[in-house]
């Protein structure tokens, strides 16, 4: 009897969760649905949620566009490299700030937080000037550095929260067992925050993957990323919904794939320290 009641509650919760997911995912489902509609149905009035005729013409059209494969490759290169760079810098920085409680580390963390508060748009002109001076406009490296400025403070704060959860005694025990500072960091502390690194990596990747303003201002032909190409479907005389939604759908797939691949680590990271104490 009690089992049945529990099952009903579970079913109810599951249905509620499903309803929330459906509502949340509705715009995305509509995006995918629109990408499968022929031109005459895209803006049909009254609108239809599902395509009456399924077609891949929008996909074949965008894949035949010269700029799309190149921009996709640029997005991958920039997002992966800036994520890697952000983690390489953020992990030791957050470790230092968390494990060595000196006044400077507090200032450092505050400064990292303040950089997150500066509106990105205000950095556009200075970044443009700097990158032009050093010859990095419209290069992968230039955009990677720009994106790293966005994701680095985020990664530092995320990672410092995970490092804070690591008992200092673990590192001290490792030191007593003969590890030096680097060994205790790499062999003992770092594996414990691997789920945190997965989360930080995912956030950094998404931040770079979807970034628009810097990509618009700092690239031209060689390093243009896909968000810019997606926006180009809006012109002064209208919006080409079919190809735009097709490209947006394709562009969303890598993030979905990465999220699924890192699902275990992400859940581990999100519940990290939840049962501590």
């Amino acid at each position: 009897m009690r089992n049945n009641a529990f099952s009903s509650r579970q079913i109810g919760l599951s249905l509620a969760a499903l309803a929330i997911v459906v509502v949340y995912a509705l715009p995305y489902i509509y995006l995918v649905s629109t990408s499968l509609k022929p031109a005459s149905q895209v803006l049909q009035i009254p609108p239809s949620f599902w395509p009456q005729t399924v077609t891949l013409e929008n996909y074949t059209r965008i894949l035949g566009t010269a700029t799309v494969p190149g921009s996709f490759a640029n997005s991958v290169i920039v997002a992966l490299t800036s994520t890697f760079l952000a983690l390489v810098l953020a992990v030791p920085a957050a470790y230092g700030a968390s494990f060595f409680r000196v006044r400077l580390s507090i200032y450092f963390m505050m400064f990292a937080l303040i950089t997150r508060m500066v509106p990105t748009v205000s950095l556009g002109v200075p970044l443009f000037t700097i990158l032009k001076d050093v010859g990095l406009l419209d290069t992968h490296l230039g955009l990677i550095l720009a994106h790293t400025t966005i994701s680095l403070p985020l990664a530092v704060w995320l990672m410092s929260a995970f490092f804070e959860s690591i008992p200092r005694e673990l590192e001290e025990a490792a030191r007593m067992d003969g590890c030096n500072r680097f060994q205790s960091f790499f062999l003992v502390v770092l594996p414990l925050v691997s789920s945190g690194m997965a989360i930080a990596a995912l956030f950094c990747f998404i931040a770079s993957w979807n970034e628009f303003l810097f990509a618009l201002l700092l690239t031209a032909d060689q390093a243009k990323t896909t968000p810019i190409v997606i926006a180009e479907f809006r012109t002064a005389y209208g919006l080409d919904w079919g190809p735009m939604t097709a490209l947006a759908t394709l562009y969303s797939l890598p993030v979905i794939l990465i999220t699924l691949l890192l699902q275990k680590q992400i859940i581990g990271g999100l519940t990290f320290g939840a049962v501590k104490g």
Partner: peptide, 11 residues
């Protein structure tokens, strides 16, 4: 150098 519509102004 092709940019989106509003991007012409921003750029």
């Amino acid at each position: 150098t092709v940019v989106p519509y509003a991007g012409v102004f921003e750029r």
